[in-house]
């Protein structure tokens, strides 16, 4: 069985036929080859599968494909435009806010969403917003530094 969903992904509107028992994460990675979104646990506990749904970071492993219908989805692949990194991506590069990079798409997306809603978050707000994404490499200090750098409040 398939259902048709009408969705916008990184600005491209598309109608796709999907198996409704797949998760949004599986659709993105396997049907659409957007493998920048990672799966670290499959049950909402590590945060590496975060994508933006209507601007909000959500764990895409817990969303069924059908809920992609009518949604505006953003994945890490959509952040850089015309070969230019967005300001969060650029700050991650400048500060070295990643190591293995596996959580980076989720971190970058979540930080981007935070800064859209709240362009001047303090450190506690940044930590709270990113508190659901694990980084086993422990890049946290530099991730925090990167997000604060974007606010212009960094040293």
């Amino acid at each position: 069985m398939t259902i048709r969903i009408d969705t916008t992904i990184n600005g491209d509107r598309m109608e796709i036929d999907v198996d409704p028992t797949l998760t949004l994460l599986e659709v993105l990675r396997e049907n659409l080859f957007l493998s920048g979104t990672k799966e670290g646990c499959g049950v909402g506990e590590c945060g590496t599968c975060v994508v933006l749904v209507d601007g909000e970071p959500v764990t895409s492993c817990l969303v069924l494909a059908g809920d992609g219908d009518g949604a505006n989805l953003e994945t890490v692949e959509g952040l850089a435009q015309n070969g230019e990194l967005n300001e969060v991506q650029q700050a991650f590069v400048n500060t070295g806010a990643f190591q293995c990079g596996f959580c980076t798409p989720a971190m970058v997306l979540s930080a981007t969403a935070l800064l859209r809603d709240n362009p001047q978050p303090d450190e506690e707000e940044v930590k709270k917003a990113l508190g659901g994404i694990l980084c086993r490499c422990g890049a946290y200090p530099k991730i925090l530094e990167a997000v604060i750098e974007v606010t212009g409040e960094g040293a």
Binding site: L34, S35, G36, T37, T75, V76, E77, L79, A80, L85, Q89, F92, V93, N94, G96, F98, G101, T104, P105, V108
Partner: peptide, 13 residues
Amino acid sequence: ARVDSVDKVTGHA
């Protein structure tokens, strides 16, 4: 800057 920077922040890695 790390040589793997762009690949990792864009999800291309």
